[in-house]
Structures are given as C-alpha cells and as structure tokens.
Design a protein around this nucleic acid. Structure first.
Lengths: 140, 140
DNA sequence: CTTGCTCCTCTAGCCACTAGAGGAAGTAGC
DNA sequence: GCTACTTCCTCTAGTGGCTAGAGGAGCAAG
C-alpha cells in the first residue's frame, strides 16, 4: 500500500542515523534503494528489517563482516545454520576474553587509584604507571 | 656514560614498536630527541622511562589524552595529585561500565547461541538478531 | 665492495562512522 | 506565486591509534 519511505523515516524507525544508512549502502551492506523522481532514496519494509538486524547486531558488538555473513545466511533460509552458530560462538568467546581482561584491569586500576597522598611525588597512580614491576600480574 | 640509544634499542627495551615511537613523537607525547650526525634519533634513559609509562598506561586502557595529562603531572612532583586520582577514577568508572555491558551482552548471545536447529529458517541466532523484542533486556 | 640490517621521510590505509560544505528538492503558510 | 523551513543530495575530510609500504640513506661485518 505504502509507496516506501524516505531515508529520514527509515532512520527514525530503525534508529540508525541517516549518514550511517548511506554508509551501509556504500559498503554494500544495504541494497541500493529505488529513487523518487527527485532522486531521493525510497525504502521498503524489507530494508527496515535489514537495518534493524544490522543495528541490533552492532549493538551486540558484532563487526560489520560477521553481520554481512549472517545476513547472507538469513537470505537463504533453507541452508544449515551451523555457520551462524559458529559465528555467534566465536563472538561469545571473544566477549568472555574481553570481560576477563577488563576484570583483571579493574583490580589493577582500583588498587592504583587508592591514593590518599597530597603530592604527585608520592602518588600511587603515577608510580604504578611508571613501574610495571609494582603490578599484581604481569599479563598486560 | 652511554651516549644514548637508537630507536631500535629503545623499542626493544620499552616494548613499544618503532613506528609507534615515531608516532608518539609526532603527536607530541615524546620530546623530539637529539640526532646523530647521520640523522638518527638518540634516546636517553629518561625517554625510556617515558615510553614505558606510556606503554603501561595504554595497556591499562588509558587513552592518549589522559596519558598526556598524567605525564605532565609526573613532571611536576610537588603539585597535588588530586587530578591524577580523578583521571584514574574516571577510567575505573568507564571500565565498570564496559564490564557491565559486556556481561549483559554475554547472557544475550549465550542464550541466542543455544541453537540446535538444522536450518537457518529456524535458527535462533538469525531470529533474535532480526527481532529485538525477543531479547532479555532492552538496554542495547 | 657487497650484503644485509637498521634507519630515515612520506604517504596511504585500517574501522565504523561523523562532520561539514554547498546545493537541490519538497512542504507549509501567506 | 513567494518565502521560509526542513529534508534530502553528493562529495570530501576528519576521528583515534596506530600499521604498512615505498623509496632511499647510513652503517657494520665479511
């Protein structure tokens, strides 16, 4: 019934910013839309679903390339989803890794920030940063 | 006693890569070193300490700008270290925030990746990414 | 003297956007 | 029809924190 929507409306309804939508088109993540007589992009509901898929995956921390693969899979519903699983699992592993590193980091910085000195000369923050040997663990 | 070291040696001893050292000089994070007759950079022990400080802080996730401020403070040992505290505390807060977000994310993706279907048509990964409503929490 | 290593400068590329210039098209009110 | 306002268009350049590569020069060992 509707003859499509402008980029502004697609932006509002997908919560993806206008320049970002054009960027996604440029890198081939979105199909090139039809245009009005006045050269404006016209989006359909399918494009909206695609944009929401991208935004959701980006919010979950997926890079563009995995998203491209996931969308290619979503376009072929009868194929095996083992690959989708693999992508999600590998993403999960990298998140676990990041959490572990950040937690170790947190301990280090929290220890460091317990500085009740008055002067830089005796400041733990400065001292610890200058001397790796005073760290709890040497992994970073 | 030593007349200084080359950029290669400074790199090995600080564990900062050669192009990165030159980059730090370019953005004014390192002082411009003296040069040999053959136009090579010559570093002193003070530069080495500075490089290690930077590397350590970068490994702890500090951005360049806070590091610049911290180093400026380290150069004035008799001033108050309240500012150093503030920088470290604000970094700590941002780490806590990232840990919290990653943990929520992990739950989402882990739930999503529990996919024992055969075909993409029934795959939870694809389904969840395409439909934000099926997420556990709406914060992302 | 030649080989091979390190060094030099300069430019361009990475990711995923974001900002801004300069202009055209569409819309609302008068 | 005119004006004002908003939205849209394309294009270029910038962000952070490096990394990669071209093309050449210096320096030590054999």
């Amino acid at each position: 019934m509707q003859p499509g929507m402008t980029i502004g409306e697609a932006s509002r309804r997908s919560e993806v910013k206008v320049p970002t939508i054009r960027y996604y088109e440029q890198i081939g993540l979105l199909p090139t839309p039809t245009r009005t007589d006045g050269n404006r992009r016209l989006y359909e509901d399918a494009d909206l679903r695609r944009l929401r898929f991208i935004r959701h995956a980006r919010n979950l921390g997926f890079d563009i390339e995995p998203i491209r693969q996931l969308m290619a899979m979503a376009d072929h519903p009868t194929r095996s989803c083992a690959e989708a699983d693999r992508i999600a699992q590998s993403h999960l592993a990298s998140i676990d890794d990041r959490i572990a590193r950040l937690t170790a980091l947190r301990a280090e910085i929290s220890r460091m920030a317990d500085c009740s000195q008055d002067m830089v000369r005796e400041c733990r923050v400065i001292e610890v940063l200058g001397d790796h040997g005073s760290c709890l663990n040497a992994e970073h």
